[in-house]
Amino acid sequence: MNANNFEMNSSVNRRRFFLTGGFAIATTTLLAACGKGAQSPKGEYPRIGEVPPTTGLPNGEPNDEVLLRTATSLEFNAIDTYKKVLALGLFTGSSAGTAAVVNRFKADHEAHAKALSGIITEAKGETFECANEQINKLYINPALDLILGNSDAGIEPSDTPLEDVMALALGLETLAASTYQFYVSMLSQPKLRAAAMGIGEQESRHAAVLAQAINPGVAGIGPSTNKDTGKPNPAAVPGAFGSLGTIAVTVGKRSEAGTKTTLNMETPSLNSMAFEYAKCS
């Protein structure tokens, strides 16, 4: 007898055992897969418990109309946010002049939305004249909660709401500018690319004005780093080329360590676009 208790010359040796066992397992698996046994009357895989039925989204292509609808939705995000910000009554005293800037930016976004809707209508498309829900959900609502507080979520209001509102506005304007720049590579027609960047360029100017308001003077024009946090300071001209990278917005009540919460914004991608099947609610 060897170490495995199988006689090497026996009819049931180790090699034959594996061959026979393997064949039996393979055969059983094959029969189970092909069979329509009592446990799967509809030919479905058996399961335990109830699974709610799901309905998949219709297919959507990021064509010119969808890109312009999405850009319009971002304009409405900005319009709605500026309306909320103006209603807070933060722009008083030495900040009273900022209200005029915010009002001008809001008016610009209204003009941009109208221009985009005009292009869509002219091309026999369907306009999308409301804010992008996904952008609200992912970026704007969390930012406003951090600034204004949300007792249900246990979030205390910011101790520097005006500073944070300006940071959010800078983030939104930068996001809008980056979105138009990004969509240039996706729009099929040159005239639409130019129309998009004509608006995107104005969003860039908004961002530069806000950056100078937050970090004024020559020191706030080019890129610089905050010595305390190690993070980039707001800059009117942060680089030679328009960036498509993540946009960091730092807002909220300072922690004991002196830090605020940073939200990272990104240009609307496939999961945030106003596809043709999307409707304003």
Binding site: A177, S178, Y180, Q181, V184, S185, P190, R193, M197, G200, E201, Q202, S204, R205, A207, A208, V209, Q212, I221, A236, V237, G239, A240, F241, G242
Partner: peptide, 20 residues
């Protein structure tokens, strides 16, 4: 599109130059 992307990234910053 390569040229369009480059020009778009330039326009974005030249608008900022002008504002400053």
């Amino acid at each position: 599109t390569d040229g369009a992307q480059l020009i778009a990234s330039i326009i974005s910053v030249q608008g900022r130059h002008a504002a400053v």
